[in-house]
């Protein structure tokens, strides 16, 4: 059996253990759904301006909800040692754990997007850009979650670290207001955020418009986050697993 098949097994087990739990699913879906409904009720024509941002936010929270604590949690429980005793490489473990986080994030954001499309008539002007945005962002966010998980020793530290990343990121990434209306001093910071690039690709997918001259710019930035996140997560995992 290949290492890829083993990564799939790890991912399936994590979905079963962590993600397929009613409280996690309802929380991940209800919060953005209610937010979008509130926006729609306030301004039926204006909800589209924030829909890509809320979908990206759902993806960010979905991908990082468990990924950010899973390694530390399993290390505490002793099950990480069990996993390390099996014939799997660190890359396989990261792929399995990030894969399950990404799958969960994708599932919740897709359900939200489908709901918005079916119930509120959200358009899909560029499906390719939308799909690329979801996939690249899911990979980048879940690896960033795993990276947070391997950087700390305690579960609460991982949660704190992730919240310090997620919440400020929401306000600098064009989730609730377009980048065009950002003050000039905030734009460089926005460009550093992976969420900004996810929002812009999804915006291109939904409305056909994007802040960037080419869709390749946000796609390449997200790809760079994926590669950097992968490299750092493997490095951090080797260090944490050896302790």
């Amino acid at each position: 059996m290949s290492q890829f098949a083993r990564a799939l097994a790890i991912g399936r087990k994590d979905v079963e253990s962590y993600y397929a739990k009613p409280p996690l699913i309802t929380w991940a879906l209800l919060f953005p759904a209610v937010l979008m409904l509130a926006m729609y009720l306030k301004d039926p024509g204006g909800y589209l301006a924030v829909a890509p941002g809320v979908i990206a936010m759902t993806l960010l929270f979905g991908c990082t909800s468990m990924a950010a604590i899973v390694v530390t949690f399993e290390k505490r429980a002793g099950t990480l040692r069990r996993l390390l005793l099996t014939p799997v490489t660190p890359q396989t473990i990261i792929l399995g754990k990030a894969g399950s986080a990404a799958a969960y994030g994708l599932a919740t954001s897709l359900v939200l997007a489908l709901g918005l499309g079916l119930l509120l008539g959200m358009p899909l002007a560029n499906p390719l850009a939308f799909a690329a945005g979801l996939l690249l962002a899911a990979a980048a966010f879940s690896l960033l979650g795993i990276l947070a998980s391997v950087m700390v020793r305690e579960v609460f530290e991982a949660m704190t670290l992730m919240n310090f990343f997620r919440f400020p990121t929401l306000f600098i990434s064009g989730v609730f207001m377009p980048l065009e209306s950002f003050p000039s001093w905030l734009l460089p910071l926005a460009m550093l955020s992976p969420l900004t690039h996810a929002v812009e690709l999804l915006r291109l997918g939904v409305s056909g418009a994007c802040h960037f001259a080419s869709p390749w710019i946000p796609a390449l930035v997200l790809a760079a986050y994926v590669l950097g996140g992968w490299w750092l997560a493997i490095r951090g995992f080797r260090r944490r697993a050896g302790q």
Binding site: M1, R6, A9, I10, K13, E16, S17, A77, G78, T79, R81, R82, L83, T86, P87, V88
Partner: peptide, 18 residues
């Protein structure tokens, strides 16, 4: 240190898969 939430059978099956 097996997986507390998984059944005995599923624990063995999962490790067999790995």
């Amino acid at each position: 240190n097996l997986y507390p939430e998984l059944s005995c059978r599923r624990n063995l099956d999962y490790l067999g898969e790995l």
